[in-house]
Nucleic acid binder design. Structure first.
Lengths: 350, 350
DNA sequence: TGTTAGCACTCATTCAGGTAGAGTGCTAAT
DNA sequence: ATTAGCACTCTACCTGAATGAGTGCTAACA
């Protein structure tokens, strides 16, 4: 527990300690190597001897802001140290805004493509790994249903859900279906199901509709099954890019750690909490340092996420994963910049 | 050029050399370490001294079947050696057929999911990296078109292409569209475009149709644009899984090589030739050793591919990527097994 | 009282030297 | 044709010494 040489607890961090901590962190971010007292004494404008710095560093270590990997090594920032850095020093913003290429706008056609493109561009720009989540409509409501006959015995069911998500399914019919009956059935389905979400398409409703359908009871059953399947279908909602960038940072390149991280990216497993908003309605930019992310594989990484908005109430997230010594300033700037561009795109699209 | 101690060229490989080569390869496959003459002399039933083996190995090296990494190391198989091994020894098939879980069939709903599942299961079963290509219909023909109004000013265009691929696009209309006109327009589009492929939906046709459409000329133009876009749209056709498995093999784990390989898998770039059938109509199982694959990143790997059939004339490929010392027997068996299961699935689906 | 110089100490890294062991090629004997 | 034996080569591994970056502590200083 932090106590100075007189045995008095040090609770508050003063100006000088803060400067030293800042110096340690930025030096470590640049080199990835533990930084010693002499380096700080020489390369800052504090005009203090290495001995003094040592005393201060000793205090900072007691306070938990820095860590000594082994007895005679320099210090590296702890999660708590990074946290302080991010919280305080990041406030005075870096003004050199990173101009991201306008490539985005050109390629923008469908949401999926935009998001994949974003992931890729961010990864290329930052040299970190990126993840982008597509917003999920939690209570997906049926907006529109269209049955059509592709051939005598093959029916296509098109379902449009909230957010203009289109799902389609084929139904193979055992006997030819009378084309004339289609409009009526379309009408029936649309009036019955419009505005309902998955939980409301339940057994009772299906039963009732089957009765109404009379001779078409069987086929209505099949159609409803497919509609339910289509609505409940979860498709990919997480895109990643630049996972191999982590191999650029020696502290993440050790075999075991790299394998875990890369596997996490490949299988997109275990990052759900981080990347969807179900549990976490906070917007804006979030920084998770080390174990704060609650992702086992990323306990030696930092993660920066940003929330983007497609329309009112519909949000997705972008995440950047890198070493703890990542360039937070640049990452935050780049993300803010990206958000702006995404806003523009989505504004133009509607 | 291969010459024995009498200066006579050795052209043909005899029984004994073959046995020795086989022993070298299987030993190397098990250990991943260069294998020396003493090992072979001790652990085979040839009853030859290490010296004799050395002579034979020297010949085998002259003939290009094995390589000495450095002067006083054992030998490892060359690409040519593996090739011989695969061509000859693989013939007598290993009978212990790997029973792959029937998980596949349960999860089988849509083609994409089946293929992703296959990639994943194969990767888990073999501990190698896998890739699966979805068949691409080369000359995609329009099978069916359906326009519908989702709201006053929003039209949904559904296009069904060869192979029951469904594409959909929204069109935002500047002014409300008369619902009554839809059937007529649907009829016009279907009769005009049915059976045409992308190359046939050209300027001339578009011009002609616009004329026919009269007052709807503008909207027909938009619709045709979207149809053309939908038909030409290339979606993902390559799924990979288990890329991180390569880190299990020391000879592929060196940083540079691993990065290249993993990047290739992540970006799915450069493996097109290997994984689609455009240039290569051969079916069945193919083995590419080292540079044979013509994929730069895989020059120290072997690749085994198998062709599967969805319906007559529609083929896709499955590929397994591992170290050159991969267990070819097991891989080939597993692939054959998988093919059978896929056949079953696709038979039931139609 | 805060700051600093000096010193003894620790520990990771590097490098040279040395050894063990696996393997080879060649030669002479069987 | 096969083998035993030997000299040789090269890698892997260990050791010990030197280096240097870094620390903590103490005593002196302003």
């Amino acid at each position: 527990m932090s106590a100075n040489n007189k045995g008095v607890m040090i609770v508050e961090i003063d100006e000088r300690k803060l400067k030293i901590l800042q110096a340690i962190i930025s030096n470590y971010m640049a080199t990835g190597e533990p930084v010693g007292s002499r380096t700080i004494s020489k390369y800052t404008d504090l005009n203090l001897s290495s001995a003094t710095i040592r005393n201060e560093m000793s205090d900072l270590e007691d306070m938990g802001y820095i860590i000594q990997p082994h007895t005679s090594a320099g210090r590296i920032p702890s999660d708590k140290g990074y946290r302080l850095y991010v919280d305080t020093m990041l406030q005075k913003k870096d003004r050199e805004v990173d101009e991201m290429k306008e490539l985005l706008v050109n390629k923008a056609d469908r949401l999926e493509n935009v998001l994949k493109q974003v992931a890729k561009l961010l990864a290329e720009n930052t040299n970190y790994a990126t993840m982008v989540s597509k917003p999920r409509y939690v209570h997906k409501k049926v907006k529109f249903i269209q049955l059509t006959l592709v051939s005598d015995t093959q029916m296509l069911v098109v379902v449009v859900i909230d957010g203009n998500i289109v799902k389609n399914r084929f139904i193979n019919l055992s006997e030819p279906f009378d084309k004339e009956e289609l409009p009526q059935m379309n009408f029936l389905l649309n009036t019955a199901l419009n505005g309902l979400d998955l939980t409301e398409i339940n057994m009772a409703l299906i039963h009732k509709m089957k009765e109404q359908a009379g001779q078409y009871s069987e086929i209505i059953g099949m159609i409803l099954d497919e509609i339910a399947a289509a609505v409940s279908e979860e498709d990919d909602y997480l895109y990643t890019s630049g996972a191999t960038n982590i191999l650029k940072y020696p502290e993440l390149s050790d075999k075991e750690m790299a394998t875990k991280l890369l596997t996490t990216f490949e299988e997109k497993a275990g990052i759900g909490n981080l990347m969807n908003l179900d549990n976490n309605e906070e917007h804006g930019i979030q920084v998770y340092i080390g174990e704060e992310s609650n992702v086992e594989a990323m306990k030696d990484c930092s993660v920066v996420t940003a929330t983007y908005k497609i329309e009112e109430g519909v949000y997705g997230k972008i995440g950047i994963v890198g070493p703890k010594r990542m360039d937070y300033q640049k990452v935050v700037n780049t993300l803010e910049n990206t958000m702006k561009q995404l806003d523009d795109i989505f504004k133009n699209k509607n």
